[in-house]
Design a protein around this nucleic acid. Sequence first.
DNA 1: GATGAATATAACTTCACGTTATGAAAATAG
DNA 2: CTATTTTCATAACGTGAAGTTATATTCATC
Lengths: 315, 315
Amino acid sequence: MKIDPRHLEILAAIVDRGGLTEGAEALGKSQPSVSRTLSQLEARIGAPLFQPGRRPLQATELGLALAEQGRAVLKADRVASDIVDRFRTGHAGLVRVGGTPIFMDGVIAPIIAFLQKTLPGVRVDQSYGYAADMIDKLRNGLIDIAILPLQANAVPAGFSFQPILPGLNVIACRHGHPLSRRRMPTLADIAQYPWIAPPADSPLYRDLRRALERIGAQDFRISFSGGSLSSVISVLTGSDSLTVLPYSVVFMMKDEEKVTALSLEIGHPDRQLGLLTADGAEHTPAVRRFRSLIAAQFDALSRRIVQHQKDQHWR
Amino acid sequence: MKIDPRHLEILAAIVDRGGLTEGAEALGKSQPSVSRTLSQLEARIGAPLFQPGRRPLQATELGLALAEQGRAVLKADRVASDIVDRFRTGHAGLVRVGGTPIFMDGVIAPIIAFLQKTLPGVRVDQSYGYAADMIDKLRNGLIDIAILPLQANAVPAGFSFQPILPGLNVIACRHGHPLSRRRMPTLADIAQYPWIAPPADSPLYRDLRRALERIGAQDFRISFSGGSLSSVISVLTGSDSLTVLPYSVVFMMKDEEKVTALSLEIGHPDRQLGLLTADGAEHTPAVRRFRSLIAAQFDALSRRIVQHQKDQHWR
DNA sequence: GATGAATATAACTTCACGTTATGAAAATAG
DNA sequence: CTATTTTCATAACGTGAAGTTATATTCATC
């Protein structure tokens, strides 16, 4: 015999609260409503759920057994409500973000780590790729947000781009590198050190080439290439190699005093790091919340960077 | 946000069966019905529960989380249905029976033990008392069935009495008792042995007095009184005492060869052992089933007793 | 027996859910 | 790539469960 789970809930409420009136109150219903539902349930079952004509109400064996199940329903229902509420407020859910490897590892991941304190129920699915890839994934709904360097006029139709940081790159070397003491290293200074190259298809690699062209370096030695950030940093700190990194990545690591940037202007691409999203995409509250928190974090980071640069100027 | 537990059930069915059509089938509903319910649920929650436009249907994170709760509801519901079904068929429930102590211990309890194999889900609440007590408890709905010796014309108004055995009493002694060998013990034989007396307010005690009067015994020594069956049997088998017991009690114990009955006619009260019930009482299926099974058992017992007596006559 | 609190009943309205019929869309096959 | 099939969504409508307020009953208690 099929029983309406709501009836079991009502029964549990009556049993646990010790009366129709209290039970109805706990359920947010009127007393007559609960009373009639109980009568109908007893009629359907064909047996009393409470000792008839006894007050205060006392459940029968059957009533108690069914109330037990009603409690299970109530609990499941409460849990479900919680899940929905947390989902709707963006405190739970899945956020799928993708972006360029070095920047994701060096800047985004630490920020996500920080955000997890605010959003402990949010799960982040991180994936790596460059612009074309990411745009494709966004279009197919495989990721929610891409974090990329992009030119303002290169934003494809149907996408929105929210800049978060200038796409500033620097030449990086280990702390204590011979060049790091020079105020203005010359081409000749630089030429004697080998380079760590980002993957050949990465924007960072193009930036490296462009920067070297700009300062007049025709030829350069590559000692290591293709690694992700942690490998690059290992090689960088363990040798006198140079590489090109987003300034923000170097900035994030400055307190560790392993890596530093040469004071050498290398010409900035007119790209901005930013959040790319597909226009039609329905974002979950968790995604929206995550996105705004990320933006806020970058705003703060951006101000810290500006402040830091000012401080260095004064010195 | 409050969620209808039935919707969670439907969601669980869809997720577990892998589609609307199958889910609807499993729930015994039409496909459009579950389709609309699902749409409404998604609308209420404000988020898709399944990846939109994907076939075969694949649940979102949120959908999976809620389906989990739906499974809990389904389970509780199924258990509740089972409880009700078993209750309605009399396979589960509470049966409250009361009766005279010696008879309950000696005959009813062994039969109940046997019935538990047929009705493993039925709980029996046994209580002891004499007629007046039991009638009172029946009237107040504190017990469902009383098992008593009663005169056919002494059945109070508003009660039904179903005889199950003749109220035959015998003088009992230990196996191997000196008197047990006598074909027809005389009063003088009997007079030298002490008696174990049932509680003074019991019908058995009155039967004892009546029996002794009938065979002409003016005076008798009481060596033990007030015990329940197991004490009485202990004293009986450990001494040469005599006592009065319902024949059915002695019969039930005959295979143990501890106790036997004297072949002495002691005059039967015109009482019958039977099942007394209050007319107005609403009996649960378990009680009805129990009652009919008890009656059947006694019918069988009664036939076994008759057969036994025939066998003894031939010897 | 009177009083007060709790439960049951009555009368009515609304809306969720069931149905069948049919349209739209996605996957599969040719 | 088009046709077919399967699966899901929508439409339209009837029924009944469950909500409401007002009021009657019933049970415990003083």
